Computed example of a mutant assay.
Amino acid sequence: MQRNEAGESTGTAPAVSLRLRLLAVALLAAHLLVVGWLTLRPLDVPWAAAANLSPLEGIRAAFAAGPLEGARRLGEGLALLAPLGVLLPLISGRLAPSALSAWSSLVRTTAAGALVSASIVMFQTAVPGQVVDVDSVLLNTVGVVLAHLAVVPALRARARVRRSRAAYQGATPKITRVGLGPWTDVLSAVPREY
């Protein structure tokens, strides 16, 4: 990647400003603290349900309890880690414009979201009152993917537009034509008649 005189990169990938990256790191830390508090605090319950280790069984049970309960369960599962789908690409510092880079960004973000969700489920095994549910891993990962697909392409387009506007330096300046100098007669091969 080449750099111009100001030290800015001139490659095709729009860079994310340092201020935005630091803000994304702070938001990610705050979000993970809230997620940890919501999912890993001990609950004082008279009884706890058995762990759900079969995929989609908890979602079916929630919809069997009623459509509102099923929608609430889906919404909570999708929304819990969804901000990771936006914050992780911002923290990486580059919003890749090419299709291959965009797919690799989606794969990396999805893998990180699944890893965070699986870690939370593993930590929940030691917390009293918290029930392990494999459906939460699935829903959290899908939420990360949906947030990434909904927001990151728009951020990429916005960064490209901003970068192209910054690169545009205005119209070419117009100058008046300058006449020929006094020595052009001497240097030209055709003699001039007076």
Rank of each mutant, 00 (worst) to 15 (best):
I120V: 12
F123A: 12
S117K: 01
V121K: 02
V131F: 10
Q130I: 02
A118W: 09
A118R: 08
G143V: 02
T110S: 13
T109Q: 08
N140P: 09
V116E: 00
Q124R: 15
S117Q: 03
L138A: 04
V116G: 01
L115C: 13
T125E: 14
D133H: 11
V134A: 12
S119C: 14
L139P: 06
V144Y: 01
T125D: 13
S119K: 12
D133R: 15
A112M: 06
T109K: 04
I120G: 01
Q124K: 09
A126C: 05
A111M: 13
T141G: 03
S119Y: 15
V137A: 10
T141I: 03
Q130H: 09
A111W: 14
G113S: 06
V132R: 10
A112C: 07
T109R: 05
V145I: 12
Q130C: 07
Q124S: 02
G113T: 02
Q124H: 05
L146M: 12
A111S: 13
Q124V: 01
F123S: 13
V134D: 00
V144D: 04
V131L: 14
D133M: 04
T110P: 09
A112N: 00
A118E: 05
A147S: 06
L139I: 08
D135M: 07
V127L: 11
P128K: 11
V144H: 07
N140T: 05
M122Y: 13
S117A: 13
V116H: 01
M122K: 11
T141N: 03
S136A: 08
L139H: 05
V144Q: 04
D133I: 10
D133E: 08
S119E: 02
V131P: 06
